[in-house]
Simulated assay, not measured.
Amino acid sequence: MQRLAALATLTLTALTLNAPSSLAASFDCEKPELAPDEKAICDNRALNDADVKMVTTFDLLAGLLAMGARGTMQDEQSAWLKRRQACGSDVACIRTAYDERLKQLTDIYNNLTRPL
């Protein structure tokens, strides 16, 4: 868990220092048809950082999981995205959505079978 958190933090730091401010991790903040949740994420640095951390963690896990588990995680991600979108521009709701998803992803990591 600590290694995943440390790697996600390092990646988050690298992405936020090197990425243009018009980009969140999962979408382009410059596109003209931003959904209300996306606009809120682009306008709020903490939410933008949460988006980067969530996507980075998701991508790291996708590389560690077998195909079936990866598919399940992708399905869960799609369902989570619908819940985040339902928040509209409610920053507190979006923050809660990210907190819950990051906890789920951390739980997936903690339950990985590791060789002895």
Results as ranks from 00 to 15, higher is better:
99 D>S: 13
36 P>Q: 09
72 T>S: 15
72 T>E: 15
106 T>A: 11
52 V>G: 02
29 C>G: 08
78 S>Y: 10
30 E>A: 14
40 A>E: 00
99 D>E: 14
75 D>L: 14
38 E>D: 01
107 D>K: 11
106 T>K: 10
10 L>Q: 13
74 Q>V: 12
10 L>C: 01
11 T>Y: 11
84 R>H: 05
24 A>V: 04
79 A>P: 00
62 A>G: 00
97 A>R: 07
107 D>P: 02
107 D>L: 12
50 A>E: 05
111 N>W: 09
109 Y>Q: 02
23 L>V: 06
3 R>G: 08
32 P>H: 03
103 K>T: 11
96 T>H: 13
44 N>A: 02
97 A>D: 06
84 R>E: 05
53 K>D: 09
79 A>V: 01
78 S>T: 14
90 D>V: 03
5 A>H: 01
44 N>G: 07
99 D>C: 04
50 A>L: 08
87 C>G: 01
23 L>P: 04
66 A>S: 14
64 L>F: 12
54 M>E: 11
98 Y>R: 06
7 L>G: 01
45 R>I: 09
91 V>F: 03
114 R>S: 10
62 A>T: 06
30 E>K: 13
88 G>N: 05
82 K>P: 00
2 Q>E: 04
74 Q>Y: 12
113 T>E: 14
106 T>I: 05
66 A>R: 13
32 P>Y: 07
55 V>H: 14
115 P>V: 13
93 C>R: 00
86 A>L: 04
20 P>R: 07
45 R>V: 12
111 N>D: 12
50 A>K: 10
27 F>V: 03
57 T>S: 08
45 R>E: 15
77 Q>H: 11
21 S>F: 08
29 C>M: 01
113 T>Y: 13
3 R>S: 10
97 A>G: 11
58 F>L: 14
